[in-house]
Design a protein around this nucleic acid. Sequence first.
DNA 1: GCCTGGCACTCGGTAGAATCGAGTGCCAAC
DNA 2: GTTGGCACTCGATTCTACCGAGTGCCAGGC
Lengths: 347, 347
Amino acid sequence: MARRVKPEKSSAGLDARKAAILEAVVREHIDTAQPVGSSAVATHGELAVSSATVRSEMVALERDGYLSQPHTSAGRVPTDKGYRYFVDHLQGGAVGPVTQQQIGDFFRTVRGEVEDVLSQTSTLLSRLTSYTSVVVGAAQSFASVLSAQLVNLDARHQLLVTVFADGSVTKHGVYLDHDVTPSAVAEASRQINALLIGTTVESRVQVPSGSEDVATLVRESVSVLHDQRPTREGEQVYIGGSSRVAEAFDGVETVRQVLTILEQELLVVSLIQDMIDQGVSVAIGSEHGFEPLASCAVVVAPLTVDGHPSGAVGLLGPTRMKYGEAMAAARAVSQELTRYLEGDPRV
Amino acid sequence: MARRVKPEKSSAGLDARKAAILEAVVREHIDTAQPVGSSAVATHGELAVSSATVRSEMVALERDGYLSQPHTSAGRVPTDKGYRYFVDHLQGGAVGPVTQQQIGDFFRTVRGEVEDVLSQTSTLLSRLTSYTSVVVGAAQSFASVLSAQLVNLDARHQLLVTVFADGSVTKHGVYLDHDVTPSAVAEASRQINALLIGTTVESRVQVPSGSEDVATLVRESVSVLHDQRPTREGEQVYIGGSSRVAEAFDGVETVRQVLTILEQELLVVSLIQDMIDQGVSVAIGSEHGFEPLASCAVVVAPLTVDGHPSGAVGLLGPTRMKYGEAMAAARAVSQELTRYLEGDPRV
DNA sequence: GCCTGGCACTCGGTAGAATCGAGTGCCAAC
DNA sequence: GTTGGCACTCGATTCTACCGAGTGCCAGGC
C-alpha cells in the first residue's frame, strides 16, 4: 500500500471548501438549533457549488468527526470537534459599541465593596450575553496582614477583624468560657496586631504561653485565624443569570443537572481554574471531562491584578452558544474589571 | 325565599365529611401530582361511604372553591383555597428524629463567619426538604459602631473597616487624589474611631472642616460610611438548592420564571419580609400577589435573635408541596439557627 | 477528475381515526 | 341521605397513512 499522504487530510487543517462548509453548518445550527441540510448550506452560504457537492463534502466531514447526523435523512449537526475547529478559526472580534458602552457605564458608576462589585459584574455579563455567568474572585492567600484587631462584643465574645494587603477583610469569633475585662481585650488586641502584621495565614508565629486572659485571647485569636479553611475563604464565586440555564436547554432534566453543578461552587472554581491554568479560553462539551456538562460550553477570561492571576470571569451556555460574542464579552468585561480593581484596590 | 342558613355552609368551616374528603384529595394529589378521583378517595380514605357520595360532596367542594377540575371527566385538584384550608387545619407536627439529628449535628459542627453559616444553613434546609431554600439575614441598621479603623493600603488608598454591635463588619475604600503619610492616616483613624463609636449609620455626626489631610480623610470616611445604600447592605440573602426548582415544576418555562424571580434578591427579601410582618407562615399560590410565583408555595419561619426580628428562613416549592414536613423543617432550623446565633453572636 | 442534476430511498414528524378508560353526573331504588 | 347502575365525556394512547426534508448514489457533462 502506497504511503502517499494527502496533504489536506493529514494536516490539522481542512481544505478551504470543507472549512467553509463546516463554518456554514456551525453558524446555521447555532442560529436555528436545527440540523442543517446540504441545500441550506449551498444556497445560504457563499460557495458557488451545488447541494450534491456539499453533500459529498459533508460525508467526508462526518467521517473525520466534525459533523454528525441525528438520524439518516436529517441534516447535520456539529460535533464537539466541529465546534472546536470553528472556535479555533474564529478571528476574535471585539465587542459591539453599544455593549462596550454598557460595560464602561457600569464600571464608571459601580460602587461598594469588592464582593458586591464582583457579584454585580456577574449579573452584567449575564445580561450582556444572555448566558449564565461566573465570576471567580481569588483572594491571595499569600497576602500579608495589614492590621489585626480584637473588638469587644461582650464580656465573653470577641471578634477578630483582620485586614490583608489585598484589601480583603475577615472576621472570626473568639470566645472564652469566662468574662474578660475590656482592658485585657485591648491589650490582647495590641499584642495580636504586633504579632500578625506582615505575616500570612500560612506563616507560623510564636504565641505566648500562660493561662492569664491576655495570653489566652492571643493564642485563641491566632489559632482561629490560621485554622480558616483555605479553599472556602480563598475564593469567592458569583453566579449570575442562572435562569438562563432554563433558556439554553429544553430538557428539564438537563437544566436540573447543570444547576446542580453550579451549586457546587468548589467544582465550578476548579473547572475554571483548570482552564485558566492551561491557558484555555473555551471548553466545549466533554473537553473538560465533566460528564454532566457534556452539553455545555464554557468560555473564560482570566483576571490579573497587578500581574498576579486573581480569578476569572466565565460564561456557561449550550455547546451551540454564540462563541464570538461570548468570548468578546468575557474579554471586554475581564479587561474593564481588571482596570477597575487595579485603580481601586479591593475596596 | 326563606332566609334559612345552613350552618355548615355559612360558617368558615366545612362539615366533618367534606373536610375529610378535601384532606384526602390534597394528600393524594401532593403524593401523586395527578388529579384525584372519587373512587380513590372512597377506597383509600377512612370514610365509609361510596364513591357516589364522595362525588356529590366533591361537587359541593368545587362550587365553594376548594377543588377544581382540569376538565370534565378528570379527577379533582385542590385550588389555592383548598390548600389553604388544608394548611390551616394541619396540626403542626415536629420534625422526625433523623432530621432533628442532622440539624443538631450541623449546628454543633459548623464554624466560620456568620455569612458562611447562613449560606450553609440554606443548603442544609434545602437538602432536608428537597425544596429550594432561602435564608435572609438582616443586619440591624440601628446597630451602633463598636470600632472604626482606617487601614493604609497604599499612599492613596485607605480602607475603612467598621465593626458594629451586632458583629457585622463593613469595609469601604477611601481614596484621595494625592499621597498621604501613614501618620496622617493613623491620626485620622483615631479621630474617626472617637467620632463614630456608639453612633449608628443613621445618626449624623459633626465632621471637622479644613483641608489638611487628616480632616479630609475623616470627612471622606464618615461620608462613605453614611452613603452606603441601606437595602443592599442591610440584608443578605442565601439561596440553597435552586436546582430543586427544576424538580418541582415540569415546564421549562415555569422553571425559568421562578429562577428569574430568585435572582432578584430584593424581591425575595420583600416577599419574605412581608410575610413575616404579617405573621404569615405559609403563602400559597397567588396569595402573595406575585404573578410569576402563582404555582409556588412559600413557607417561612422568622429568626429572632435576642428578641429582635433579624431575618427568616424560608422554603419555596410547588403548591403541591409537603406542607407538614416543610413547615416542621423550617421551624426546627430557624430555632436551632436562632440558638446558634444567640449563643454565638455573629461570629 | 471533479461537479452536477436526477432519482430512489429513508425516516422523523404530523394529522386523523379509532380506541381505551378513568372519571363524571344523574337517577331510580333502597 | 346513601348507593349501585349507567350513559356520557374527553384526554391520552395507539395506529396508520402520508408528507417532505434530506440523504446516498450514479450517470452524464464540463
